[in-house]
Computed example of a mutant assay.
Amino acid sequence: MGLSLPHILILAVVAVLLLGGGRFSAMMGDVAKGVKNFKKGMSEEEEASSTARTTRLQNQASLDPNPDRDLQPAKDDRPAA
């Protein structure tokens, strides 16, 4: 036994009559603001997580060997005496 469309409409009319139109709409506005703030917080958290992950990947040393490093002679920065 579920709620059909007529049952839901009757409940909505009773709620509006008991709470009043202005109070009911204000309550729905508060719910909408809460959902909007929740979504905004989730996107900010995901953005911060993504930024931290990118920074961590950039700071990791490369694991690939550099073959040119061993073939290049060492540069001596000291002036000739």
Rank of each mutant, 00 (worst) to 15 (best):
A80G: 07
G2Y: 12
K36D: 08
A32M: 06
D70L: 13
A80M: 07
Q72V: 00
V16E: 15
R56Y: 14
L71V: 09
S49E: 11
L3D: 11
P67S: 02
A61W: 03
S62M: 06
N59E: 05
G41M: 01
R69A: 06
S43Q: 03
F24L: 14
M28A: 14
N66W: 10
A52E: 06
P67E: 00
V16S: 13
F24K: 03
V13F: 15
V14C: 11
G41R: 02
P67F: 05
G29P: 07
S25G: 06
N59F: 13
G22N: 12
E46M: 08
L18A: 14
H7T: 08
R78W: 00
E45I: 08
M27S: 01
Q60V: 07
S50F: 12
L17I: 08
N66L: 08
K75T: 04
T54F: 06
Q60I: 08
K75I: 02
T54L: 04
P79H: 09
N59V: 05
L18Q: 13
V35W: 08
P67I: 09
P73V: 03
P79S: 00
L5F: 11
F38M: 10
L71Y: 04
S50Q: 09
P65E: 04
R56F: 15
L18E: 15
V16G: 15
A74C: 05
D64C: 11
D64E: 09
L17H: 09
R78K: 02
D68W: 11
R23P: 01
Q60H: 05
M42L: 15
N37D: 09
M28G: 11
V35R: 10
E44M: 14
M28P: 09
K40W: 09
D68A: 13
D77H: 14
L3Y: 03
P65Y: 00
T51A: 15
R23S: 05
G34M: 05
G41V: 00
N66T: 05
A48S: 13
S62K: 06
A61I: 11
L71Q: 11
G2I: 14
G29D: 11
H7S: 00
M28F: 12
L11C: 10
N37L: 11
A74Y: 03
L57I: 08
L19I: 07
G41Q: 00
N37M: 00
A48Q: 13
D68I: 01
K75C: 04
M42R: 15
R56C: 06
K36G: 09
R53T: 07
T54P: 04
